[in-house]
Nucleic acid binder design. Structure first.
Lengths: 222, 222
DNA sequence: GTTCTTCTTCTTGTATACAAGACATTTGAC
DNA sequence: GTCAAATGTCTTGTATACAAGAAGAAGAAC
């Protein structure tokens, strides 16, 4: 067994949480889950700790582990921060990006367009993710890149549902092109603004997010 | 025994790490440390996991836990991000700050000045910390506030040594006043700029940081 | 003499056993 | 009848025992 049980358990639980398999505030029973997964409590507890560190779980001393879905307000707050972080990445990327990175980004954009033509939203999603990560890297600040990736991952389930909204894909694509153009001509401010706009929750995106949120976390109005 | 051993152990190790008691890359022996602290391996391992999540430790599968001091480059990168996060807090705080919060901030500033007059750098440090945290809170974005506090804590040891540099305290104080004035007149841009400047590593602060870094993590040039 | 293989030992990863706190239920007193 | 206290059960926190992988040393083959 070369792989760590604790890690695989963590991923499985994480998946279950982000797909909305647990209600908000629900208590996770160590023994039951361990039994269900066919492992002992030790790796399960380690998984709990990791999930708590990511903010998906709240560990209360001697009380247990509780599912902690972000409320709608917190979600909007997170997107607000994400927008600013992405803007920061873009600002720096416009100055530090290499021609190799420009070429890489160009490739993902073409893959994105191909995905749209074929109506393959999963493929679009994957390439979209690559696009953003490439910009994080291009910022030239590796700490920033890691933080951006972390937050990006945290927001994954909500962003994904948003993309399914009709007409969002071509609009998103257009924004990608705007961002790319700004990077190409090393226009820091334009890159930052375009990325901020691209990520920020405003206008109809607001109600789109709200809808996907309701779908994922029903009954948590706040 | 109302407190969790795992937590107290985590804090103790954290303290040991940030005070430079371990060399970079050093491997931490579970058994030895457990023995030294008089606890079993279980809470110690949990502490390791938490420290790894904070980035202070690198856990390599079946190899062990290794001390991971940030290199100088990474440190500068972290301060760069911190500056931007603080700017973001300030920008939002200028719009959302309540009169109660203004009063609270004012109090810490006066405490800061009193600390300077008495040459009490520890007291100044504590009030300085309060000042920044109040601004995080005043941003009105609780997620942002949490993230800012997290990064702030991470940079604690390096900032602290910087403050000891001669003449830094009054300069820092002046900047606090500028920030406060911007908040009072709800000038978002000025608040953001002032905070960015206050936190950013530039000019002589660069060499100050380098010096304190060398002192804390000798022999890690990068 | 060098290199590859094998064995030993050490260390981490996992399971299980034990202790102690928290919550609920029941019983007793007012 | 209601409230409080005590006890019992359940769950988490900690300790220890066991298994498996990795690094290092020793020996054999070339």
């Amino acid at each position: 067994m070369g792989t760590r049980i604790a890690d695989s358990v963590r991923e499985r639980i994480e998946q279950m949480i982000v797909t909305g398999e647990f209600a908000d505030g629900e208590r996770l029973d160590e023994v039951k889950l361990a039994e269900q997964f066919g492992v002992s409590r030790t790796p399960l507890r380690e998984a709990f700790q990791a999930l708590a560190a990511s903010g998906l779980l709240a560990l209360e001393a001697r009380r247990g582990a509780f599912i902690r879905h972000p409320g709608f307000v917190e979600l909007v707050e997170m997107f607000e921060v994400m927008a600013e972080i992405e803007a920061m990445c873009g600002f720096r990327a416009a100055r530090h990006v290499t021609s190799q990175q420009i070429a890489d980004i160009d490739l993902t954009l073409e893959a994105c367009e191909s995905a749209i033509r074929q109506g393959d939203s999963d493929e679009y999603y994957r390439e979209n993710e690559k696009f953003h990560h490439l910009i994080y890297e291009a910022s030239g600040n590796r700490f920033l890149a890691r933080e951006a990736a972390r937050l990006h991952k945290r927001l994954k389930p909500y962003r994904r549902m948003q993309l399914r909204v009709t007409g969002r894909m071509p609009q998103s694509m257009k924004e990608h092109r705007t961002i790319f153009a700004a990077l190409q001509r090393s226009d820091s401010k334009a890159a930052a603004t375009a990325l901020r706009q691209h990520v920020a929750i405003q206008g109809e995106k607001f109600s789109d997010l709200m809808a996907s949120f309701q779908q994922l976390v029903p009954g948590k109005a706040r």
